[in-house]
């Protein structure tokens, strides 16, 4: 289905003209299809790079990254059916919420009635249908993130990438959205990869958890395995 596997994968990003910094160092891991996979680690450990790599957005790489049997370089973004959500504002400011959510479907040239149906369904599912005709600048940050989730969800993606999307939200809203994500995962069954530095997030959501530090994979396993891990870094990370 949508199995992702990293094999000895390294990623570099450009610091200056000729200087590159190693961002991921020989990562080998497998993300099973339809799983809820969480990547934890401190800031700067390479989580974002990992996600960007799946999108094909890292220029210089080494090693293999295979999605569904194809190497990531050979995948066209359009056909990949992936969605990506981060902390940054990514809604189109000049379009209404409805148009924002409809945008991916229009790219895929779905016909008008189906677009209408799907957008309304998704907005309803996330309980933001009353916002449909508002513009992003009229929304609160929490509402904006929900619209972003809607936009990500509406094209029924096989892979959903989340890059610390809720770290700016207050705890109640965070909880609510975490639950929403869990429900989405249960209903639509995409492969979800969720990056965060918050352990609570990881333990609540993750079926499988990977711990990254400084571009290296420190540990990987289920919640219990991580909790009982005896690796130094993992223990120190857990105690924060």
């Amino acid at each position: 289905m949508a199995k992702i596997s990293f094999q000895d994968f390294s990623a570099y990003y450009k610091l200056k003209k000729k200087k590159y910094v190693l961002s991921l160092n020989k990562i080998t891991l497998e993300i099973p299809s339809e799983s809820f996979f969480v990547v934890v680690g401190p800031s700067g450990s390479g989580k974002t790079t990992l996600l960007k790599a799946i999108l094909g957005g890292v220029e210089l790489t080494d090693g293999l990254l295979i999605i569904n049997g194809t190497s990531v370089e050979n995948i066209k973004k359009k056909e990949a059916n992936i969605s990506y959500l981060s902390q940054e504002y990514s809604l189109y400011p000049h379009m209404t919420v409805y148009e924002n959510v409809a945008f991916p479907l229009r790219r895929m040239r779905t016909d008008f009635q189906e677009i209408d149906l799907r957008v309304k369904t998704v907005l309803d599912y996330l309980k933001i249908d009353f916002l449909a005709s508002r513009k992003p600048r009229q929304l609160s940050y929490g509402q904006m993130q929900r619209v972003a989730i809607a936009r990500a969800l509406v094209k029924n993606p096989r892979i959903m990438l989340f890059d610390e999307p809720f770290s700016n939200l207050e705890p109640t809203l965070k909880n609510e959205l975490r639950l929403t994500l869990k429900n989405i995962h249960q209903e639509f069954k995409p492969t979800i990869i969720y990056a965060t530095h918050d352990l609570t997030d990881a333990f609540i959501l993750g079926e499988k958890i990977a711990v990254l530090n400084g571009g290296e994979l420190e540990a990987i396993g289920t919640k219990e395995e991580i909790e009982n891990s005896d690796k130094a870094f993992v223990r120190s990370f857990l105690s924060r």
């Binding site: 570099y12 000729k18 200087k19 590159y20 910094v21 190693l22 160092n25 700067g44 210089l60 400084g214």
Partner: peptide
């Protein structure tokens, strides 16, 4: 902190 650790890994690719 990360940068310091990676300093030795800055490559002139």
């Amino acid at each position: 902190e990360f940068q310091a650790k990676q300093a030795r890994l800055i490559h002139s690719i």
